[in-house]
Design a protein around this nucleic acid. Structure first.
Lengths: 262, 262
DNA sequence: AAATGATTTTCACTCTGTGAAAATATAGGG
DNA sequence: CCCTATATTTTCACAGAGTGAAAATCATTT
């Protein structure tokens, strides 16, 4: 089996660095800004940008000559999102769940050591949680993350914990491996995870539950994400059964048996 | 000013061809399938895939070894979508409009000679229109397309029509340039466009209106897209003012004056 | 087991990407 | 308006990077 990163193509590495020079705080950049951020010579950058532009991965503003990511990336993203199939099937349940509480609902999957948020349905309240889709987030912090982690085998969990240090990301991040193991066991037993300011200090909280396919494999997690101040005991106890029900509903659609609600 | 495509980097061209080998009918591919579709030698493909995988633009299924587009593309797409800023500001109005009729609402922009659908809010009815975001669609067919085209200057329209042949895409596609010019004039006058089976034979219909910025430039279009059989005269006449109002609302948020409703 | 087909590795050659430097365009100040 | 400073675009000779044929390995089927 091909070891990851055995082969590498220099130019391609560089071109991808150029694409990644853009982020949510730098949505448009000038040539020289890109050169600095990607740590490349301007000539090289220009050549790469020119090629990327021809394929629509980069676009250039006619007025000010600044570069941004091109719309072809949106087309690719639709295909990427659809390739797991999950997002499509989960959508109706996400809708329902979002409308029930008017809070943000998120669909996540595990990709290696990370959680990826595939899709979200955003509540309409003024203060709301909005997550950035696609970004890789650690598996040890946050309700959805821990649900996904609880779907790993025990040896996979051991392996993960031996490789990844548990860094304090927010007030209540679990940094003790032993404590995390206990939490994961509880999640498996009770069928849901909860978090309260574990991931970012912005003050988020939430409930999440696992989605299973016909082979009883966990293929994703659905969760409701709430601004911390709104996460009252009342809301919490209302959310738990509803989130679990939504997860089961999606599991059934996928041919899974879901998980019995206690 | 740099002529488009003056510079090109061979490997990068090839790598992008690899990415574009995936489409909605081929969401996962094997190495040799990719090699055939991208018209490259397997060795070359493998090298490119390996590099792309390391950066998360491609991922590989552990079980069957098949390749798909990676989740990093989702992250890039979020940035690309946000770079115009429009999607963010338009969201509340799109929501409202979607809920008013429970039909699919689409936000589009013009990118050169094409329309790009930036974002959509999908109605919940069983039969519904779902568009593929990001894909480049012609400017001459469909309500939103024609709105965007009506935002061009007359000379730009002349130029477009001299370059792009009007191909019959569906039953009612406008293929006569003169007729299209008249329609565009009407759209400018009345402030909305409508279409009935112009774009695909799947049977779509809709109403769309333009969004303007502070400089009175058209920066996008918002439209409601309906399965053809549901597009009754009653619905049509209800939609027109509401779609125009939504477009104006977004224009105002952007600092534009919007367009007076007659 | 053997055979077929796909994937991975290797390697010598050549073509391609490189980046310095010059030329041009753009912006800012006096 | 011209001069200066900065950013962008073009050019080019060289080195090193990508190429693809072929061999080796792995997977699947008969």
């Amino acid at each position: 089996m091909l070891e990851d990163g055995r082969y590498r193509v220099n130019v391609l590495d560089r071109a991808i660095t150029v694409l990644k020079a853009f982020d949510s705080n730098h949505r448009s950049l000038t040539l020289s800004e890109i050169a600095v951020r990607a740590n490349l010579h301007v000539s090289t950058c220009l050549r790469l940008l020119s090629t990327l532009t021809r394929h629509g991965l980069i676009r250039r503003d006619q007025d000010n000559g600044r570069y941004s990511l091109g719309y072809e990336i949106l087309a690719l993203a639709e295909i990427a999102r659809g390739s797991s199939g999950l997002a499509e099937w989960a959508r109706p349940a996400m809708r329902e769940l979002c409308q029930a509480f008017d809070e943000t609902v998120v669909l996540s999957i595990r990709n290696g050591d990370y959680r990826i948020d595939l899709d979200q349905e955003i509540g309409q309240q003024n203060v709301r949680r909005v997550l950035s889709l696609g970004e890789a987030k650690p598996l040890y912090a946050g309700a959805a993350s821990q649900v996904l982690m609880s779907g790993l085998t025990d040896s996979e969990i051991d392996d993960y914990l031996s490789r990844i240090p548990l860094i304090k990301l927010a007030e209540n991040t679990i940094t003790d491996p032993q404590e995390l193991r206990q939490i994961l066991a509880r999640i498996r037993r009770e069928g849901f995870a909860e978090s309260f300011q574990q991931q970012s200090d912005q003050g988020g909280a939430g409930i999440a539950a696992g989605i299973f396919d016909a082979r009883r494999q966990m293929v994703g997690a659905i969760g409701v994400s709430v601004p911390q101040y709104r996460f009252t005991p009342t809301l919490r106890s209302k959310l738990i059964p509803v989130v679990m029900a939504a997860a089961n509903k999606i599991s059934l659609v996928l041919g899974g048996r879901g998980r019995m609600i206690a």
